[in-house]
Design a protein around this nucleic acid. Structure first.
Length: 372
DNA sequence: GGGTCCAG
């Protein structure tokens, strides 16, 4: 198997060594091992490599469906949401769901549980996961956004290992430097940094926005207005999804294997009647090339009246999407794109503006344009 | 004052 060994840096090798030592002898005293690192430092690669050497089942999980899906893409077999892993769900009379800890969970006899994007995990879920008494390796970036309510339970304590060398972008790339500036509290200065730019409205060209692989904003209001403006520029006339439109999924559907945060292109509007005026769409995933098409059913009302509450009986029968040209940083967390356009709304997030902007910038691999 | 997540 040596042929398939990834090339590790000395920092990564030291991390591997520490985690391996913990696994070998330390998990009785210390249930949780915190392997932290800035975005793109190779945390999952290390975890997967260690898992391959273990005798016994390793389970992979993340808080969000999207993060679990990204784990799968990175070779973490069977990665799932923590909710799917440890709870069993019962439907109550009013249509809501009651989750109970599932004693039969695969977590109960795992030799190791690996949790990615752990900055999003809150205290309740973290403690439920720990109640199985199995060793947990948590991966995360303490500089990224915490859950909306409360603190990140795992990122609230000191890391056991902190990876600092970024491999996602080229070393000392402009993106890395901009991200570091923000992380360390310096403010961004208007100008050009390689192919990346920090701009004000006057510097802006439509192509900066339309040419980006993803637009990232802070507020939902901004997201909706960017979505409309971009759709208008692209020539879409209808308020409903059209062939060629870019959509983001808003709720996991494990049966259809679509996940919240997943991006899709509308490739067909199949003819045919659906009950209640539901609208069938044929979609192609934009997150990985060559994936199969998926047929979903949407409720047009969710597009015609965004923000209006949807009746429960309708909700369960359809899938839930929104236009995906612009995303909030909160929903873009865990994803990455080559060329990202950011509308800097960090000042709105008063508790942690630098975490907001850092998370936004580190979504970009090759190029970022930041409108300040 | 602003952002989200999970469950069939």
């Amino acid at each position: 198997m040596y042929g398939s060994l990834p090339t590790f840096s000395s920092q990564q090798l030291a991390a591997l060594d520490k985690v391996a030592k913990w696994l070998k002898s330390g998990t009785g005293d210390q249930q949780v091992f915190r392997l932290f690192g800035f975005a793109g430092t190779g945390k999952t690669t290390i975890a997967r490599h260690l898992a391959a050497e273990l005798n016994g089942p390793v389970v992979y999980a993340a808080y969000t469906g999207k993060a679990a899906h990204v784990m799968q893409q990175n070779g973490c077999e069977g990665a799932t949401t923590i909710h799917q892993l440890i709870y069993s769900w019962e439907r109550k009379r009013d249509g809501s769901f009651l989750g109970e800890l599932n004693a039969e969970s695969d977590a109960a006899d795992a030799v190791l549980i690996v949790v990615d994007e752990c900055s999003m995990v809150d205290e309740v879920v973290a403690k439920d996961l720990m109640s199985f008494g199995r060793p947990i390796l948590v991966l995360g970036d303490p500089a990224q956004l915490a859950p909306v309510k409360g603190e990140g339970f795992f990122t609230d304590a000191k890391p056991d290992v902190m990876l600092t060398e970024v491999h996602r972008q080229a070393k000392n790339s402009p993106i890395q430097r901009l991200a570091m500036d923000v992380r360390e509290g310096r403010s961004l200065i208007r100008g050009t940094y390689g192919t990346s730019r920090v701009v004000v409205l006057d510097d802006l060209d439509t192509e900066d926005i339309l040419g980006a692989d993803q637009v990232i904003v802070g507020r939902n209001d901004t997201r909706l207005s960017y979505n409309s403006v971009i759709r208008e520029s692209l020539g879409f006339k209808s308020a409903l999804p059209c062939i060629g439109d870019r959509l983001v999924c808003r709720q996991n559907d494990h049966r259809l294997q679509i996940y919240n945060g997943g991006l899709y292109r509308v490739i067909d509007l199949p003819e045919g009647k659906s009950p209640h005026g539901y609208m069938p769409l044929m979609l192609q995933s934009l997150d990985h090339a060559g994936s199969r098409e998926v047929r979903v059913l949407i409720n047009p009302d969710e597009f015609l009246h965004p923000g209006r509450a949807v009746e429960a009986k309708h909700y369960g029968r359809t899938q839930h999407f929104d236009f995906g040209y612009a995303l909030t940083v909160h929903r873009a967390q865990g994803s990455q794109w080559s060329n990202v356009f950011i509308v800097d709304e960090s000042e709105v997030f008063r508790a942690s503006p630098q975490k907001w902007l850092y998370t936004a910038i580190t979504r970009a691999i090759d190029r970022v344009t930041i409108l300040v």
